[in-house]
Design a binder for these strands. Structure first.
Length: 493
DNA sequence: GTAGGGTTAG
């Protein structure tokens, strides 16, 4: 028996319990179990060769064999789209794709995951018998592919809706960044009397966290406590921790964490990442070191949080040490986030050359976040030469975002190079990059106030400006070259 | 052995 290809993956019971290889008296069940084993370990090609061997040895696959295979294809980005349709053709030949609910549903799920909503819908329409899961699957397929109208249409048509149906819609909107819509649907769900389960709550909390609305978050927390049915659910608590941190309420996050009767590594990670996010550096590192006492080993997310804390505090050496420990002791392969932290660590410390070295030597193509860290440092250090050298990386990025173009253009503008700035704008136009307005928002007494650059429409704009000016002066007195950071950050003046 | 879920760098 061979172990899975990824050596960094934790070895679980699942990996070790290979099923007995099909023997001479192999049955459909034993072949299927062997196929399932390979699918679970992300070895679709192996699963398929088993499937072929099964057929040539004269054993017929049944509905479970097909469900296993379709589910395996759905989870394989590389081979799935190539293999899935031919397995479908085979199921078609024996009619299982329309006559068996589970097989049909697995096919719908597979095509949805490939982005083939048309094929998913065709399979759905052809099925003789559908159950709730079939309906939820096709609606989920539409949601994940951004076809909201089709999803809602089927949602309205479906004979019987359960908590999962609602959650599919709610979470579908959350995943596409439509948090307000998600919450509207949640409200409707409660209004019509369907009880949410813990997955619904996790999804709703994610929407709330992204909106940064503490009052909504507190409401959901009260809801959880009142219902009691999910009060001590680890995942709900993890989501509460994340929500409170994203809303800037570290104290409440700690309270939730402390009250948990049982924690997972994600609970620890949510604290570490959340504390780092809120610049509570010492505490973030202390949680990072404490998770071992709870019997956990830090994973790649834990390191991201700890590294991020170091970069916010300018702890370059500590950060580098963590990065080394991650590779050498924890045997975790650094991912792009970790290189991003490293670049950020050097960038914020003003060590641009070191940052550039990381960028050039990292084993994967840098993305816009990594470039953005360095570019922001170029702006702060007024290093236009380095910024120009980054241009090639920026133009090479996909997908095209506006962030770095705007940053680059601002660097040119800040150094008085209007021609450079205008060239960037031209390039943006040529590439079809649109600058989206940056919006800052703050919640005061449950009301969310939004501001865009140059925005003076707020009823208290005048006093807000006065306070900002005052803060800016205070900053200068304290020795921080403010560089009009307030005008940039808050969009006034 | 078919459906929905949490933490990740600018």
């Amino acid at each position: 028996m061979s172990l899975p290809a990824s050596t960094s993956a934790p070895i679980t019971i699942q990996h070790l319990s290979s099923p007995p290889p099909p023997s001479l008296e192999a049955t459909t069940a034993s072949w299927t179990s062997s196929i399932a084993y390979h699918c679970k370990n992300s070895r679709l090609s192996k699963a398929i060769s088993q499937f072929t061997a099964m057929r040539t040895s004269g054993v017929d696959p049944n509905h479970i064999t097909f469900v296993t295979l379709f589910s395996g294809c759905a989870h394989s980005r590389s081979h799935g789209p190539l293999i899935g349709p031919s397995v479908h053709a085979y199921a078609r030949k024996i009619g299982l794709d329309v006559s068996n609910v589970m097989v049909g549903t697995a096919i719908i799920d597979m095509y949805s995951k490939f982005g083939e909503t048309g094929l998913a819908r065709l399979s759905f329409d052809r099925m003789v018998l559908k159950n709730k899961i079939t309906w939820n699957t096709i609606i989920n397929g539409y949601m994940r592919n951004g076809k909201f109208e089709d999803a809602v249409e089927l949602f309205d048509e479906m004979p019987e809706r359960d908590a999962v149906s609602w959650t599919v819609l709610i979470d579908g909107f959350v995943k596409k960044g439509k948090y307000d819509l998600a919450l509207e649907w949640f409200q409707e769900m409660l209004h019509l009397g369907t009880a949410p389960d813990f997955v619904t709550i996790v999804s709703v909390l994610s929407a709330v966290a992204n909106l940064g609305s503490l009052s909504l978050g507190l409401w959901v927390h009260r809801f959880v406590l009142m219902r009691g049915f999910i009060k001590d659910n680890i995942r709900v608590s993890n989501s509460l921790i994340d929500m409170y941190c994203k809303c800037g309420c570290v104290e409440l996050a700690i309270q939730v964490f402390d009250k948990m009767p049982e924690r997972s590594l994600v609970s620890w990670n949510s604290m570490i990442v959340g504390l780092a996010y809120n610049a509570h550096v010492e505490e973030a590192l202390s949680y990072f070191h404490s998770l071992k006492r709870d019997g956990f080993n830090p994973d790649s997310v834990s390191f991201t949080g700890a590294l991020n804390a170091c970069s916010h505090a300018g702890l370059v050496e500590k950060g580098l040490e963590l990065f080394e420990n991650m590779k050498e002791i924890s045997k975790i392969n650094p991912r792009i986030e970790h290189y991003g932290c490293l670049v950020d660590l050097y960038s914020r410390a003003g060590r641009l050359k070191d940052a550039l070295k990381v960028l050039d030597e990292m084993p994967m193509k840098p993305n816009e976040v990594v470039i953005g860290s360095l570019l922001a440092a170029c702006r702060d250090c007024k290093d236009i030469d380095l910024a120009e050298r980054l241009t090639k990386y920026i133009y090479d990025l996909d997908p095209i975002g506006d962030f770095n173009y705007v940053l680059l253009s601002n660097i040119y503008a800040a150094t008085g190079s209007w021609r450079g700035a205008s060239n960037v704008r031209k390039k943006m136009k040529a590439l079809g990059v649109q600058k989206r307005p940056g919006i800052s928002s703050i919640e005061v007494n449950g009301v969310i106030h939004e501001f865009v650059a140059g925005d003076k429409s707020h009823s208290d704009a005048e006093s807000i400006c006065l306070i900002l000016e005052h803060l800016s002066d205070e900053f200068k007195i304290c020795g921080h070259a403010s560089d009009d950071i307030f005008s940039e950050a808050c969009g006034f003046y």
